[in-house]
Design a protein around this nucleic acid. Structure first.
Length: 578
RNA sequence: GUCCCAGUAGCUCAGCGGAUAGAGCGGCUGCCUUCUAAGCAGCGGGCCGGGGGUUCGAAUCCCUCCUGGGACGCCA
């Protein structure tokens, strides 16, 4: 028998999950995989086919019902190495697979698949398990309590959050939800770029608007922020503080007005994000890295490691020595650090100071070129670069009908997150962004999004939840107690199809935590809703048959638990009525 | 010029080594005396950008070309 590779052992650990009433059990997919592995080992031990290294055994969910609940192509993969007909391998494997109480049967199917069917009784019992466990049914233990930080949005506090940033916001908050469900200890963080040029420009712009607001002649600085929101900010500052800043030195006034403006801007950003359910555990100040001399320490570490070189009056990070295309300036010839330098310090802080096991950054596509050098500098600081994952969310192109909307904060042409939520609503907005994988560019037609809002798939999913709530309300009004309902009565095709969808959520949580691709959640939720609507239309729940009524009410409750949980993971509300 | 991402139904997008390629929207046709019709059932719709390869098997992997977006600063 082949000893499982260390990699396989790791995997089996990753796939365990707790939280069921009968103690720790394993994801069903993983159980099936293990059984096939066992079967292969036994077949080889018995000499049914030559003993060779068993390739990675993968189990998939076939799309066609007649192919069973799981399918495995191991025989096809084995065929060449053992020089046998794959169908013959499959046939010899079938009787070796231990069925246990989960599996009904295993079939060999041409050209050499193993099709695995789950036992009806096992599926039915999951309904009880879901009702007992509640939302925790979906939880897995992939993270094993490891500390992971998700840093996202981190928009410069020079203006409100706009539509493009919203994609990253929705993505990050959902990932954080899922990672938590997968057993990680999660910190959601917003990095405040409160140091550097852009902030100086913002302060100076705000100061100019302030002077204008108190009736003085003032010009925006070159390249300054032209957005109307700064005019409003300035007016509000005047309302609260009068013209006292106009009487101080320009330098001091810019500092004080700027400080006020920064705080107000951050508050606007926080509120706008909260409106689509995005909240943070930590707001981390870039300036703090300098004030606590963590920046200086990081630079010193790089210098000691021989990663810095002085040239043309600037200090460079010699990334070419680490296989990069070019070196990067860390300290400019004017003595000021670059954004890259504080980023190095920031990531040193994340790993070495705060001790996160893993860090996930969500960036816009316009920062994509910075990934290699950030990884390089993390490595140069003696940290393992693979602990850092940078997810690049592609651009969101805005349209209004046929007209393209160009978003530029400095020019002030912004479609803000606030506008978007006002037009489309937070639920549709989250669902819409979430349904697309981050690496595909998307076109957001504001007209269409608004028009579609009644036909948006999010309502389809939410409606299923509202129907569930309605049935449970009726049951309660009629004083029905279904705790003793017998799940063995759930045998209709619509009932079984629904149960099959319900049991998928833990596996989905596992795979999203693994691949960091939450766009599968909305698709799952839609499929689950479809299964429920189908059930609803074919199986009347509350009837004059008390036994069947109780059993079906249990299924309805279990459906509500899983549907609400998948909506919760996406940050979408689960309405009781619609 | 170099690097990254994308190209799948009329539109917006899933699928990323498995069996006859999917969903929503839009179009057409049926279904409300029964727990919400924001629902269900059905019809139509595709050289999976082109061309080569690898494989028992390719929308999926490799090469190449085309198209669109992004990145290549002592900006962030």
């Amino acid at each position: 028998m082949q000893a499982p590779s260390p990699n396989e052992l790791d995997c089996s650990k990753l796939f365990t999950w707790a939280d069921t009433s009968d103690g720790v059990s394993m994801l069903i997919t993983e159980q099936v995989r293990q059984r096939i592995l066992q079967a292969a080992a036994e077949a080889q031990a018995k000499g049914l086919f030559p003993a060779i290294a068993t390739p990675e055994v993968q189990v998939e969910r076939p799309s066609k019902e007649e192919h069973g609940d799981f399918a495995c192509s191991l025989p096809l993969k084995l065929a060449r190495a053992v020089r046998m007909n794959p169908m013959e391998i499959a046939r010899r494997l079938v009787p070796m697979v231990p069925l246990g109480e989960e599996m009904e049967k295993v079939e060999a199917a041409p050209p050499g698949f193993l099709n695995i069917f789950l036992r009806e009784s096992w599926l039915q019992r999951q309904v009880d398990a879901i009702v007992e466990a509640g939302p925790a049914y979906s939880n897995v233990d992939a993270g094993q309590g490891h500390r992971v930080q998700v840093e996202f949005v981190s928009v410069n506090p020079t203006g409100p959050v706009h539509v493009g940033h919203t994609r990253g916001a929705v993505l990050g908050s959902t990932l954080a939800n899922v990672l938590k469900a997968a057993g990680y200890q999660v910190t959601r963080e917003y990095y405040i770029n409160d140091a550097g040029n852009q902030m100086e420009l913002f302060y100076a712009s705000l100061y100019a608007r302030y002077l204008q607001a108190v009736g003085q002649d003032a010009q925006l600085p070159n390249g300054g922020y032209q957005g109307a929101y700064l005019v409003d900010e300035a007016k509000e500052i005047v309302a609260a503080h009068g013209d006292r800043f106009a009487k101080m030195s320009r330098e001091q006034a810019i500092r004080e007005v700027g400080e006020l403006g920064l705080r107000r801007m951050l508050e606007v950003i926080r509120q706008d994000l909260a409106a689509i359910g995005v909240e943070f555990d930590q707001w981390f100040s870039e300036k703090g890295l300098f004030e606590s001399s963590q920046y200086q320490r990081t630079v010193e570490l790089l210098r000691q490691g021989g990663h810095l070189a002085e040239r043309e009056g600037a200090i460079w990070f010699v990334s070419t020595a680490l296989g990069e295309d070019k070196d990067n300036v860390m300290v400019r010839s004017n003595g000021l650090p670059t954004y890259f330098a504080s980023d190095a310090a920031y990531h040193y802080n994340k790993f070495a100071v705060r001790g996160f096991d893993r860090v996930i950054n969500i960036w816009g596509a316009d920062h994509q070129g910075h990934v290699p050098r950030l990884k390089a500098v993390v490595g140069a600081l003696g940290l393992e670069p693979s602990r850092l994952t940078v997810i690049i969310a592609q651009m969101v192109a805005l349209k209004r009908g046929n007209e393209r909307v160009k978003a530029s904060k400095r020019k002030g042409e912004i479609v803000t997150l606030r506008d978007l939520v006002a037009e489309v609503g937070p639920d549709a907005c989250r669902f819409f962004f979430l349904a697309r994988s981050p690496e595909s560019q998307m076109e957001f037609d504001l007209e269409l999004a608004q028009k579609q809002s009644q036909e948006n798939p999010v309502y389809y999913v939410q409606y299923a939840h509202a129907r569930i709530a309605g049935i449970l309300r009726n049951a309660e009004e009629q004083g029905l107690d279904f705790r003793r309902g017998d799940v063995a009565l759930l045998r209709a095709p619509e009932e079984m199809a629904l149960i099959r969808k319900l049991v998928l959520l833990p596996e989905l949580v596992q795979s999203v935590a693994d691949t960091l691709q939450p766009h599968h959640l909305p698709h799952y939720a839609t499929e689950l809703a479809t299964a429920f609507h189908w059930f609803y239309d074919h199986c009347r729940v509350i009837t004059d048959d008390p036994a069947l009524t109780s059993a079906r009410l249990k299924l309805v409750e279990a459906s509500g638990v899983i549907l609400a949980r998948s909506l919760e993971l996406m940050g979408v509300s689960a309405p009781q009525r619609m």
